[in-house]
């Protein structure tokens, strides 16, 4: 009996050690990012894992822009773009999701079918064509163009929110309708207040899109001047072959500073996403 118990304990220890080892492997690059950002040497440290000398000097440099790196500006640019994108995308997503979920109208099925077909086109491909269009209207190298690219087709990503609205009890809406409530009021005063989890999820995920994105920003802002970049493009340009030796540590600092708020939002979104899916299921 005793032997069995010790056997079990060693199995538990082995199990947790295995997870520990995996987590260790997974975190190596992240730890390296944080450590390198505190290095006093501006280029890439190639001989040792941990910096030889620790200092905060590159964090200070990050807030004193020069011609190449203008992190505070980039951060503001991305923030502005993200705010606009959030407002437009969220309203598009919620509007489409609500219309297709709660309302019944003749064009509902055909429209949803169209969305299925359009979703088969990878976003990347249509964006190359969008680039042509924006170029014709002189909207490349402008925030307006980038915001349009991020939020213009947001309506196509309505399915998660629709899944949530589908679980809102129909009896509530029916009751409101019988009491003479208009469709618009049902939308604003009954369904929207009940949908906090999915709203938070939609808001955060559309806010994160511009922060996480690299391709579209590169495509549209590439030829612009440094002060107009977003964080992604700015940090990418710092790793250019001619710049990497003097900017690598600053890149790490920027990477850490961008990752902190994004990670926090990401974790919040996580929670609401699960809540939006499971919470809705319980209600229905």
């Amino acid at each position: 009996m005793k032997k069995m118990k010790s056997n079990r304990t060693s199995r538990i220890i082995g199990h947790n050690v295995l997870i520990g080892v995996l987590a260790f492997i997974w975190l190596i690059p992240i730890v390296w990012l944080v450590c390198t950002s505190f290095s006093s040497y501006p280029g890439m440290n190639t001989s040792t894992f941990f910096p030889k000398e620790w200092s905060l000097i590159h964090y200070q440099k990050l807030f004193h822009p020069d011609t190449v790196q203008q992190f505070p500006r980039w951060f503001m640019n991305t923030f502005i773009i993200a705010c606009f994108t959030t407002v437009i995308s969220t309203s598009f997503v919620v509007m489409v999701a609500y219309a297709t979920s709660v309302l019944r109208f003749p064009m509902r099925k055909p429209l949803m079918n169209m969305a299925v077909i359009l979703n088969l086109f990878p976003g990347m491909l249509s964006m190359i064509a969008v680039y042509f269009v924006l170029k014709t209207f002189n909207l490349t190298n402008s925030y307006a163009g980038l915001i349009m690219v991020y939020s213009g087709s947001a309506g196509l990503g309505y399915l998660i929110a629709k899944g949530f609205f589908d679980t809102v009890p129909r009896a509530l809406c029916e009751a409101a309708r019988i009491d003479g409530c208009s469709e618009a009021r049902i939308f604003w005063q009954i369904v929207i207040p009940m949908s906090r989890p999915i709203l938070v999820y939609t808001v955060i995920s559309s806010f994160l899109a511009p922060w996480m994105d690299f391709v579209f920003a590169k495509m549209i802002l590439n030829a612009g001047i440094s002060a107009n970049y977003t964080v992604a493009i700015g940090l990418y340009k710092m790793l250019d072959k001619s710049l990497i030796n003097s900017y690598f540590t600053i890149f790490c600092c920027g990477g850490v500073l961008v990752s902190v708020p994004i990670s926090i939002l990401f974790f919040i979104m996580q929670k609401f996403y699960v809540e939006g899916i499971t919470g809705g299921a319980v209600k229905g």
Partner: peptide
């Protein structure tokens, strides 16, 4: 999750 919470262009 920290690994995926860091933006891809950084990691």
């Amino acid at each position: 999750i920290i690994t995926i919470a860091v933006p891809q262009f950084v990691s």
